[in-house]
């Protein structure tokens, strides 16, 4: 065991001595120390982000075009329709939501589609065989998908700024809730990708979970517009808090407590992160 690593000076050798013969992790070159930063970077950039950017036209311009069309349709439909919240027009209300929706959708799509594609083609083994712990792989997947989402969201937000006047802008809320939402959907995508065995499983998660969560989150309407019976239900949608907090950074008003929303999203993200990490570590549906 020690022969592979070279010199027996670092901790790898000590772990290797106690581990069974086929413990691949003990074969790491000794320079890795406790955390394989370069491996994490490779998963993050080479495996996730680069694949996304290689198709720059569709992955970034596609959501931009459809989001702008969405906004355009609302603007044309608006005219004499008044305000969504006191002092906030329909356009100003919807534009941040459209940007967050693009962000969330891109983050989900990237992590989930990437994992499903690799599972279908068998190339997921490339990641499993690499000297990376489950935590490092999952961190790479989730962070790269979240970055893709943030890029898409930023682009859409910039695009909408052409039509919409954002006189108020609070970078803390905008960035904070954008990151929380991107992580949430990247984690959901990772778990969905691990669970899905075929493309139609992925399609089912997208069609029956992600799109409803995103569209019924108050992206396009304020809570007061909802019929009485559904008002309480929206508070069970975590995306509602993300949209609300994100929009508060643009218009300066929120429909619910921002601290509560941030805390809730952080707790949810942590839970999902632990779940995704344990699923990957256990080899759920990826190890024969």
């Amino acid at each position: 065991m020690t022969g592979v690593g070279g010199s027996p000076e670092a901790e790898g050798a000590a772990v290797g001595a106690a581990a069974p013969v086929l413990a691949f992790r003990a074969w790491r070159p000794l320079s890795f120390r406790r955390f394989n930063w370069r491996g994490l970077w490779t998963v993050y950039y080479g495996y996730g982000l680069f694949r996304f950017l290689r198709f720059g036209l569709e992955t970034l311009a596609g959501p931009l075009v459809s989001s702008m069309l969405f906004l355009l349709v609302f603007v044309v439909g608006q005219r004499s329709l008044g305000e969504m919240l006191p002092g906030v027009g329909l356009k100003e209300f919807i534009a941040p939501g459209v940007a967050l929706y693009a962000l969330a959708y891109t983050a989900f799509q990237n992590s989930a589609a990437m994992i499903v594609l690799d599972k279908m083609e068998g190339t997921i083994a490339d990641v499993q065989m690499a000297p990376l712990s489950a935590l490092e792989v999952i961190a790479g997947f989730v962070l790269s998908a979240a970055t893709c989402g943030l890029m898409s969201g930023a682009l859409v937000a910039l695009g909408t700024a052409v039509f919409v006047d954002y006189s108020y802008f609070d970078v803390t809320f905008v960035l904070g809730f954008a990151v929380l939402a991107a992580l949430l959907f990247a984690l959901l995508g990772t778990i969905a990708g691990l669970w899905a065995e075929r493309w139609d499983h992925y399609g089912a998660v997208e069609g029956f979970l992600i799109v409803p969560l995103g569209l019924l989150s108050g992206t396009f309407f304020s809570v007061e517009r909802l019929p009485e019976a559904f008002r309480d239900w929206i508070y069970f949608n975590p995306v509602f808090y993300a949209v609300d907090g994100f929009r508060a950074g643009f218009i300066g008003q929120a429909e619910t407590s921002l601290a509560l929303g941030a805390g809730l999203l952080a707790a949810l993200n942590l839970t999902l992160a632990v779940l995704a990490w344990r699923l990957f570590a256990a080899g759920y549906k990826i190890r024969p």
């Binding site: 439909g77 089912a204 069609g207 029956f208 799109v211």
Partner: peptide, 22 residues
């Protein structure tokens, strides 16, 4: 599920949000 049910759900959601918003 992907080719018939998912479009149905998405379209109904579109109807809901556009009616609520506009």
């Amino acid at each position: 599920t992907q080719t018939l049910l998912a479009p149905m759900v998405t379209t109904l959601l579109f109807l809901a949000i556009f009616t609520l918003a506009l």
